[in-house]
Lab assay of single mutants.
Amino acid sequence: MQRVNMIMAESPGLITICLLGYLLSAECTVFLDHENANKILNRPKRYNSGKLEEFVQGNLERECMEEKCSFEEAREVFENTERTTEFWKQYVDGDQCESNPCLNGGSCKDDINSYECWCPFGFEGKNCELDVTCNIKNGRCEQFCKNSADNKVVCSCTEGYRLAENQKSCEPAVPFPCGRVSVSQTSKLTRAETVFPDVDYVNSTEAETILDNITQSTQSFNDFTRVVGGEDAKPGQFPWQVVLNGKVDAFCGGSIVNEKWIVTAAHCVETGVKITVVAGEHNIEETEHTEQKRNVIRIIPHHNYNAAINKYNHDIALLELDEPLVLNSYVTPICIADKEYTNIFLKFGSGYVSGWGRVFHKGRSALVLQYLRVPLVDRATCLRSTKFTIYNNMFCAGFHEGGRDSCQGDSGGPHVTEVEGTSFLTGIISWGEECAMKGKYGIYTKVSRYVNWIKEKTKLT
């Protein structure tokens, strides 16, 4: 034993070699072989497995989906700052455009905790909710729209109204504003409101030439003092309507412009014939205590009207009353817009006519005020429907199939267009061939041609 100890002390290297040989010859039971080890760690190889990531292109799944990435790591994937920024906006807080917040056709661009709407022409605001041009839906104005110097929408209202708090709607500024039905039992019968379409306001006024200088022999019209197929109006439903009495009662109609003036057809009036105007009328054979009678003290036909040349060209006249009318729910003026808007309103496509005229061709006159909704007829169809001249200051309205029309005794009465609950004068009943005849239409004086003249002559002093 002493000898062994001496050998170990003198030859430590020998001992180490012996131990190493023993270990190498022993069977290893701690580690699995290569094949079995792979069965336990069965993990798919990654895209760049075996390579240094710093030297390969980034992978979106590896960089940002398996674990949260930084902007720089995302930049490695896209290799483009702009594309990385677009991805980053949604990656950080989701897609803010998912709810489609942009209105009126706006395009949404996502941002971090926010979004941006790219608005089409005519709109602005956070969600493109603000109209900035009158060309689109009248700028959301209830009545009139004008573009300011910086191309912003400025709404306005006709006389007797003021802008509401929203700067879009119009509200009454006087007790009985024009064009409004205020009798409670008839307010439910107000005709369907007309909503502004998209309009090209630059070209809204037709490029028409008034044929002022045409000389033409007097034409022989049949029954051209021209509501057939209409309905009984309720008291106060058309408070701007008046009836004219002269040699015979209810020979023509008219509309209240203001307390002192009536507008009617020029062919209705004769110099030297006494005319009485009755406002607030409903049943011409009954006294309903809503009527107001006034005498006409002055007749002003349009300066281009000449019955000797043509009885229905420039067929418009103004009547001055001896005493002002007292405005109330049964006696209310009709609204008159400017030339541009009167023309736009007419193009809405349908209007209402009213009167006490004959209820059928050569038949009896109506006792109760009649009204009828009539569609506008395109000019080409209008011209083809008659052998008589249709001037540019006239328009056609009615039904091709016949059966409904204005008729004798309705002449001078109103053709009105309702705009968001307020009625505007767009025409004056003038003439036609018979009444409600198939293929024939009622012919009306186009008020847009005469609004400046009306307003100039009827100013209240």
Rank of each mutant, 00 (worst) to 15 (best):
C157T: 00
F424Q: 00
V447W: 01
G230T: 10
A164I: 05
A279F: 02
N127H: 14
Y330W: 11
L321I: 07
P414C: 10
N222I: 08
W261V: 01
K45Y: 04
F221V: 07
L32K: 12
L41S: 12
H282W: 12
F121E: 14
G355E: 04
C102M: 00
N283Y: 09
N36Q: 11
Q143H: 10
L383P: 03
A9D: 04
L318V: 06
G272R: 02
G421Y: 04
V263C: 02
H361V: 15
P324E: 06
G58V: 13
V368S: 06
V331M: 00
A173G: 09
E10V: 14
G403I: 15
I136P: 15
F348Y: 12
H302N: 04
K247Y: 04
A266W: 00
C178V: 00
V278N: 04
K45E: 14
C134D: 03
G160L: 00
R83H: 15
V273L: 04
C97G: 02
P175W: 04
V4M: 14
L346R: 05
I15M: 08
L14H: 03
M6D: 07
D249C: 00
Q370G: 10
V353Y: 04
I299M: 08
I390S: 12
N113C: 04
T276I: 07
N306D: 11
I214V: 12
I309K: 14
F123P: 03
C97F: 01
E231F: 06
G409V: 05
L52P: 15
K146N: 08
C18R: 02
S11R: 12
F224W: 11
T81P: 14
D131G: 13
K339R: 15
L376H: 05
T225Y: 12
T29L: 15
Y161M: 04
L60K: 09
F388S: 11
E420Q: 09
E10T: 12
E27S: 14
V199M: 11
N310V: 03
C18N: 02
G246T: 05
C170L: 01
D405M: 13
T81C: 04
Q185S: 09
L52C: 07
C268R: 00
S329P: 14
Q57Y: 06
Y305N: 03
Q57T: 05
P235Y: 07
E320V: 00
G427D: 00
I390M: 09
A250N: 12
Y305E: 02
Q237R: 07
N222K: 09
P239Y: 01
E10H: 15
F399C: 07
G160V: 00
G409E: 07
A397R: 02
L244H: 02
L211G: 13
L189E: 14
R358L: 08
Y371N: 10
N295F: 03
E281R: 10
T158C: 05
K457A: 11
E53I: 05
I275L: 14
T29A: 06
L327S: 03
L244A: 01
K168D: 03
G403P: 13
C157Q: 00
D110C: 05
G413C: 10
Y441W: 05
C155T: 00
H314P: 02
N80G: 12
K146F: 10
A265G: 04
F123V: 05
L346N: 04
A192S: 09
E259I: 04
N203R: 07
M65Q: 12
N113T: 14
I428H: 03
Q219L: 06
I7D: 05
K109T: 11
Q57A: 11
L383D: 07
G412K: 03
C157K: 00
L460W: 11
V92K: 15
R404M: 04
A266Q: 02
L367A: 14
Y441T: 08
